[in-house]
Design a protein around this nucleic acid. Structure first.
Lengths: 134, 134
DNA sequence: GGCTATTTGTACGTATGTATC
DNA sequence: GGATACATACGTACAAATAGC
């Protein structure tokens, strides 16, 4: 239940409820969340507040929105392995808006940037790769 | 200039302007952005829209908000090196809200999760580490 | 093709709370 | 105390894209 008088903000409480539903499997990968309007009505809060909660889950990479079909639990991508060679360095950061669009990254997905010994860099979506030692 | 009739949303246009100011160095690390009210007045838009633009920059890890002192250009953290050993795997993802609070991570900062051969995992803030081959 | 309903996106406004200076 | 600044939450309205009939 959502308690408007609680210390934790209402939108964070809703985000917590939805996150638990996702992590427990109650809402499985690919399944739609209730619409923003439904969530607002069910919990007696405004659609604005619902959108804040969903925005939170988007930044965590837990859901993806397909406008205007709905909001869905993210489906894990097949993971490929990238080897880290001698002299290479890897960092992770969030992409800018332009990078997200250029590489068709969904929200809440970091990028891994690998810098080779010669200074050249390659960029990988973090939801599709894991790094291993060469 | 911001053009309300343009294809790109007003809040994205403002985010673009601020991002350019940061990346060009016009707004250096640690410097404050104009207040939300000032940005709204200067561009003739609502404070709500200004907040959307700043929220975008927060998810990109470009600014951090110190309530209620203001919004500041993020200062790069000193970077430590982590070695990736044989049998270890590294992935990057966004932390959940709980993880962010537990590790005092600022917004827009991914975490790097290293899984050892025995299955144990360690978590590192992505703005403070780079991975190198052992 | 066309119409309608649904759903998310954008943008506005207002009010109040809270922490800092 | 007062002013400033960000956070939360409500409301409204319209736009745009998809789905169903």
């Amino acid at each position: 239940m959502i308690d408007p008088s609680a210390d934790r903000a209402v939108f964070r409480q809703l985000a917590d409820l939805l996150r638990e539903a996702i992590e427990s499997g109650e809402l499985g990968p690919g399944e739609p969340l209730p619409s923003e309007l439904r969530l607002a009505q069910e919990h007696g809060i405004s659609r604005t507040t619902v959108r804040q909660a969903i925005a939170q889950l988007r930044t965590e990479g837990l859901v993806s929105v397909e406008r205007p079909r709905g909001t869905f639990v993210r489906v894990p991508e097949p993971i490929g392995q990238i080897t880290l060679g001698i002299g290479e360095r890897a960092v992770a950061r969030m992409p800018t808006d332009a990078e997200r669009r250029a590489h068709r990254l969904s929200e809440g997905v970091p990028v891994i940037v690998i810098t080779a010994a010669d200074g050249s860099t390659t960029l990988h979506p973090a939801d599709r790769v894991e790094l291993i030692r060469s």
